[in-house]
Design a protein around this nucleic acid. Structure first.
Lengths: 92, 92
DNA sequence: ATGATATATAATAATATTCATATATTTGTT
DNA sequence: AACAAATATATGAATATTATTATATATCAT
């Protein structure tokens, strides 16, 4: 099991949200928790693409997931990312 | 000349600092403006590697540069990145 | 002008990321 | 049990990133 430094962890988080689709997903989740279908309907992207990006975010513990029947509801679960999101939303 | 959306610009910035070496450089610059030699002495990395990473940061307008004789002094020039750096330094 | 120091750039091989397509799983409904 | 809907995973080709090595440029001192 690999051990990562604080800097490595942080840079992986920044890199994960440093992708236009994933950043859009995260900013969207900041406004409203959503299931996959809502996200790809909204972004006009293939379902698999959205699932793949969500999976990246989930692996880095940036988002969490709740099962609601067949649906999966995603939400931001990382306080540092929430801070960044707030900084972005203030800038707009 | 390519036109980029706000989200694309932001995600490129996050991606640029989402690399362990570049994040280390940026966090270091937040404490003290430095020239290239100080940075690679300090990080134990080849000079070319540091120059290349600085060049990535410069292209994204994350850092600026001042000539001081043979030396080049780098400094953070992006307010959004400064906000993120502050958020990180508060977390430690 | 020559040499030394600091930095930048070019070229490239190794590696990682991305997106699309196809397929598999899971859950609810009939 | 069979089907449909929502989501996840596997595979692979195209592309991008990374680190290394070698070379080039710029500035200062002699």
């Amino acid at each position: 099991m690999e051990v990562k430094s604080y800097i490595e962890d942080l840079s992986e988080i920044l890199k994960a949200i440093g992708h236009p689709v994933r950043l859009t997903i995260v900013l969207g989740l900041a406004k409203k928790n959503s299931c996959v279908k809502e996200i790809w309907d909204c972004l006009g992207l293939p379902q698999a693409t959205v699932s793949q990006h969500l999976s990246v975010l989930k692996n880095k513990k940036i988002v969490g997931m709740r099962k609601l029947g067949v649906r999966r509801e995603y939400f931001i679960s990382n306080p540092f990312v929430e801070k960044i999101v707030k900084a972005i939303l203030l800038e707009e």
